[in-house]
Amino acid sequence: MHTDDRRAADLEELGLTNYEARVYLALIRRDVFTAAEVAREAQVPRQRVYDVLEGLTRRQLAVLHPGKVAGYSAVAPEVAVDRLMEQQRRSLGRLERLSDDLARELLPTWDSGRTHTDPLDYVEVLRDAADISDRFARIQSEAERELLSFSRPPWVTPSENVAGFEASARLHAAGRTVRSLYSQDVLDDPVMLEVVRRFGEVGEEIRIAESLPLKLIVADGSTVLCDMPDPVARAGATTSLVIRHPSLAETLRMAFQSIWEQSPTLDEALKLREAATVRDAAAASAAAGAEGGAAARSAAEGGSAAVGGA
């Protein structure tokens, strides 16, 4: 990291904004700067530098020199750091008092809540399509370590799953796990096949299962979202369950892993499909040839019988 960037980051840790840190670092390079000069030196927008300088002056980290053209200078670094530390100590003291008061106020409510439990507090039932879509996006966006999913028709279009695309890229970049099992139906859908390839390009690991019983996503080994097609309601109706239960999530992770290990990659599945198509074509051609040969033999035998009869 560039030295000034590191110093600015340290000043931000002490409570300055990025612009304030950059302007202070510029001010210490010379005795006095005008606002325009320090804006150029610190690479801060001209329209913002006046507010930044006013803030530093108010916090006693810079000194204003009035005149026809006002100038500004920095206080000595050791003084500035001491003042920032003192401001942090005061802020920390206020937070400690606030947290103590808040804890005392909330404790009675928390205690009374221990007397009420609902065995299904960890299960949420969703039936509205918009609610299901929103929760699906949130689960993907909030995943920090792992996303595992069963994907089968009806497919979610890319415009409906921007969060999934971004989550795949984010988790992959962080060295985390993002894996999807797609049912073989995807091989017959050119549009969806292209979508799957796009997910693979940003880091999603992909395999093709022979069949999948339902659509499912498991996030961070603790949260499960699954679609449960309604066998009674109108065709296409579905109910989604959000279940926050680590034991259930772990069981489904094991099921996912079992199917994953038995399933080919997307490229392998496409090669297997192509080979099967070639075999089927060859078998059909052989069958047609055999039928043609049998018909020819039958015609020849019929002709010989006719000659003999004559």
Rank of each mutant, 00 (worst) to 15 (best):
H65F: 14
H65C: 02
H65Q: 15
P66Y: 13
P66K: 13
G67C: 12
G67T: 12
G67A: 09
K68A: 07
V69R: 15
A70C: 06
G71T: 14
G71W: 15
G71R: 15
G71H: 14
Y72S: 00
Y72G: 00
Y72N: 03
Y72L: 07
S73Y: 02
S73F: 05
S73E: 15
S73I: 03
A74N: 02
V75N: 08
V75Y: 12
V75D: 08
A76M: 10
A76D: 10
A76G: 00
P77R: 00
P77T: 02
E78N: 08
V79G: 00
V79H: 03
V79M: 06
V79D: 11
V79Y: 07
A80Y: 10
A80H: 08
A80I: 09
V81T: 11
V81P: 05
V81G: 00
V81R: 08
V81S: 01
D82G: 03
D82R: 15
D82P: 00
R83G: 06
R83E: 12
R83Y: 10
R83M: 11
R83S: 09
L84H: 09
L84N: 06
M85C: 03
M85N: 10
M85V: 15
E86C: 02
Q87E: 12
Q87P: 10
Q87Y: 04
Q88L: 13
Q88M: 11
Q88D: 06
R89S: 08
R89Y: 01
R90V: 01
S91D: 06
S91Q: 11
L92M: 03
L92C: 05
L92V: 12
G93C: 01
G93I: 03
G93E: 07
G93N: 01
R94I: 05
R94S: 04
L95W: 06
L95P: 01
L95E: 13
E96C: 04
E96P: 00
R97C: 04
R97N: 07
R97V: 07
R97A: 11
